[in-house]
């Protein structure tokens, strides 16, 4: 499933990150690489962006950006 579709508490292992363009590249650099464990922590009051835990730290990203990340729950 796509990271953008996850609800708080859901998560899994990254299976693919579309690395095209600066946004995809930034996601890879921030540690959203194949095999990384991630979890959605919470969602901003207006439904977007989302906060996830990756590699032991908290990362905020927009749903549109999270749509480039596929995970295996």
């Amino acid at each position: 499933m796509l990271l953008s579709e996850c609800q708080p508490g859901q998560g899994g292992v990254v299976t693919r990150t579309a690395g095209d363009g600066p946004i995809g590249q930034r996601l890879l650099e921030m540690g959203l690489i194949e095999g990384a464990r991630i979890q959605v922590i919470r969602v901003a009051p207006l439904g977007d962006p989302i906060e996830i835990k990756v590699g032991g730290y908290a990362l905020s990203l927009r749903r549109s950006e999270a749509a480039g990340v596929e995970i295996q729950p």
Partner: peptide
């Protein structure tokens, strides 16, 4: 220009 990433650490 391209939308800049809003990929940001919450320190």
């Amino acid at each position: 220009g391209p939308t800049p990433p809003f990929v940001m650490e919450l320190p």
